[in-house]
């Protein structure tokens, strides 16, 4: 291939990237959200090594220390077993981020191939896949997740499965739309002309070209998914004790509320900050990608 051709295809990409960085700089709220997410992910990765009381992650009890209000020794106070809530909330980041990534990842894994097949093949296959998608979309996602987990049995793994089952249709829709427009492109038609089998076109040409919008969508969905995990755990359908999961901690704390208020307030604050960071980023990304707001 001619070198100048490569240069030309890369150029606009660099321009878009530079512009995005510029917009990100201008849009302070989005930039703050991005830094916040980096910090949260860092905490999630490092939490086992940086928390002050690593032994408090299990159900080890120090009853003599129970329900201590926030202090210099225990920033967020202690819980009913005398465990350091600060350590548990920090470690909870790891639980929420990893389950969030797993749930979204699973939803993407179901959604992408179905969307690619539906969009590329069209016809009856498309009809069938999209009608099934519609059925799943006609449930509020949290509700579908609640039913599924209560039928599968309450556990964090089943919560992940349930969330994936209620989230995949969005990715199917997204990828299908992409696939339909890709189908008309020259390189796909060229591949078809030389007799490339459909599955190869879908795997090698359609799916790789739909990945970036899917990643954007997935990062925007992380906030909602983390909130759903916390909600399921709050109902007793997600993480089980002694897992330091935020929703579960709030659920347990209700027995001692409002006297031991710190037990409920700090894990909730962690949920809020994390979900907010992802939602702010998602909102900013949407604005950056939207050509209407981009012009101004």
């Amino acid at each position: 291939m001619n070198y100048s051709v490569i240069k030309e295809t890369i150029k606009p990409k660099i321009k878009v990237f530079k512009e995005s960085i510029y917009l990100l700089r201008r849009n302070k709220l989005t930039a703050i959200a991005l830094y916040l997410i980096l910090a949260i992910v860092l905490i999630a990765i490092l939490s086992p090594y940086i928390i002050p009381y690593p032994e408090h992650i299990s159900d080890e009890a120090n009853i003599q220390n129970k329900f201590m209000p926030p202090s210099g020794k225990h920033f967020f106070g202690t819980d009913e077993l005398g465990r350091d809530i600060f350590s548990r909330v920090l470690y909870g980041t790891r639980v929420s981020i990893s389950t969030g990534i797993l749930a979204v990842g699973l939803a993407v894994l179901i959604g992408i191939p179905l969307g690619a097949i539906a969009g590329f093949r069209g016809g009856v296959i498309d009809e069938v896949i999209m009608r099934i998608t519609d059925m799943f979309l006609s449930f509020p996602p949290l509700l579908l997740a609640i039913v599924l987990v209560s039928l599968l049995g309450p556990s964090l793994n089943n919560a992940i499965i349930a969330i994936a089952v209620s989230w995949w249709p969005w990715y199917t829709r997204l990828v299908r739309g992409q696939a339909i427009s890709l189908k008309e492109r020259k390189f796909i038609q060229a591949a078809q002309t030389i007799g490339t089998p459909d599955y190869k076109i879908i795997l090698k040409h359609i799916i790789p070209n739909t990945i970036s919008p899917v990643i954007v969508q997935a990062s925007m969905d992380m906030g909602g998914v983390i909130l759903t995990i916390a909600s399921l755990s709050f109902l007793g359908l997600g993480a089980q004790p002694p897992t330091p999961e935020w929703g579960l901690m709030i659920s347990i704390s209700r027995k001692y509320f409002p006297d031991v208020w710190w037990y409920s307030i700090f894990p909730g604050l962690a949920i809020f900050v994390t979900v907010l960071a992802f939602n702010l980023l998602g909102d900013g990304v949407r604005e950056i990608l939207d050509p209407k707001t981009r012009k101004k």
Partner: peptide, 12 residues
Amino acid sequence: SLPAFWVALFLQ
């Protein structure tokens, strides 16, 4: 972005 159950407890 707020967990409704936490808002409930906070308001209480």
